[in-house]
Design a protein around this nucleic acid. Sequence first.
RNA 1: GCGCCCGUAGCUCAGUUGGACAGAGCAGCGGUUUCCUAAACCGCAGGUCGUGCGUUCGAGUCGCACCGGGCGCACCA
Length: 579
Amino acid sequence: MLRALVQERLRESLQSLGLGEITPEVTVPDKPEFGDFSSNLAFVLKPRMPGTPPRQIAEKIVARLDKSPFAKVEVVGPGFINFFLQPETVQHALREILNQEYHYGRLEMGQGQRALVEFVSANPTGPLTIGHCRQAVLGDVICRLLENAGYDVTREYYYNDAGRQMKLLGESVRARYLELLGQPVPFPDEGYHGEYIREIAREIQKRHGSNWAEASVEPFKEFAEAELFSEIKRTLSRLFRLPPERVFDIYYNETWLYAHDTQNALASVTNAQVLEWLRELGFAYEKDGAIWFKATALGRPQDRVLVRSHTGEPTYRLPDMAYHANKLLRGFDLIVDIFGADHQDTYQDVLAAVRALWEGGKLPKECNPHKIRVLIHQWVNLLRGGQPVKMSKRMATFVTIDELIDEIKSTVELDPALDTEQTREDFSVNVVRYFLLMRSADSHVNFDLDLAKKQSKDNPVYYVMYAYTRIRSIFDKSKGSVGAVGFQALRLPEELALIKKLDEFPQIVRDATEHLAPHFLAVYVHELAGIFHDFYEKHRVLDEANPEVTQARLALCYGVQIVLERAFALLGLKAPERM
RNA sequence: GCGCCCGUAGCUCAGUUGGACAGAGCAGCGGUUUCCUAAACCGCAGGUCGUGCGUUCGAGUCGCACCGGGCGCACCA
């Protein structure tokens, strides 16, 4: 990496000045006049060299510097050090990339450690909607990033089929079923009105005729749950481009936490156990017949009920605490929770409780809650005709992920030779994923359906994909392969800019992984595509009159192809060969 | 009222360990095609980075206050 090289030269210089222990900060400046890299080292060093103006400090550092990789090193302004690389230095970076090929951008930070990523976790009361879509895609990419970094990743989905909502689901299906049999009963007050409920009822009628007329709610609930879960897996299978049986590794059922089961290693700690521990540590108490969590003692704004007074049932908070205790006990090195903005307050109670258990010695030392990282994402606003679409799951005024993909798919147009059902599916999934990935999880996303459906350049996905197809097209025409060539021919600004951008890739992947921020990568890919388009427009790759340049530029294109394919794989995008 | 997130160009958004005159896409205006796909490229225009204090050599970035928007604040999940 070029930046590491600059840092290394600086470090050597510092050592000779007796300041070797500092890791110099090196950035890529915005303006080309400021060079390829820049360091503010002189300012950082200022407190350690009182009385010396930063400019002089910078000059001292530069005087001791090994300048062989650079065409020029300047001290400018109040004390910035700007580095201008030799073309040969940049060319060498391309060599490195081609050597590493599809290993380029792999990270070592995971080192075979185990990571658990929990996401989506919707109770199966209906199809997945756009509300779940962002979380699903974020989680999927974070899993891919962690795998790339060497983690052994477990994808987990937490759900509950025992609560009130699931009972309502069963009652809703039962009501629709009896309606079909001509024995209508009142529809449950807060039941689910979606058409999918009728479909499930029809399916029951198809398989069981009128045999379920006297049945209780329970079988209806179970039938609906099974149907909906397989539907959910099918949807995620489209979105993740994984077979349905592989979209998640573990479906963790909240009910496992209610009764101790020695057979179940995933739930070695129950709700009751956690409650007892909290009591022993003084973080649980009784009031008004309920059991409360003394969250205020842990710096939280208010105490919360853990066990209800009337029914004796736990609220969702207690099993959540038990669930997280179990996550820690299962021996993961990294635990990632992905939640929507509605959880931003509540997860902190759960973490506070788990921390208290650990600090109180109830959980083994290796179960340090620092291993848990929570990623909160803001909501997606679906816009249709410029207006936000109001959605309610219960009233069935929602747009499902499948509907979203299908709607976009109906407008996709690709090169006729490649315009198949599969490529259209691939492309519409690209659009959905990219729209949701290109923004920071912290910011709200306006998903403009009209825009996503437009098969035009408004759509950044096309821009990125088009760069890839241009490269493929060059290689189709070139007939030759990329051989062992010299890169001395690559010295034009657009060529060097492209290599320098390729050189940034591993650091971008590292940043995205460390910050659990896929949008770093999504933004990078867009920038890389832009630099490639610029190069492509200005310089012809294939030139029979000049085989040396052709070979060097083909190698450059291959480097871009490698990085694009690596980035696409991490983002779960699938580029077409032609558009 | 309390907590978390956001407020950057007409629109949608980057800018994540504070760094040099603030970026991209789209929309607007003007150009580019005997040549690897013009779903592209080039140029122009567009901003008191919500407001005000503060921290410092330096603040879109950190702190405080205020204004505006989103989401929470259940013995629902």
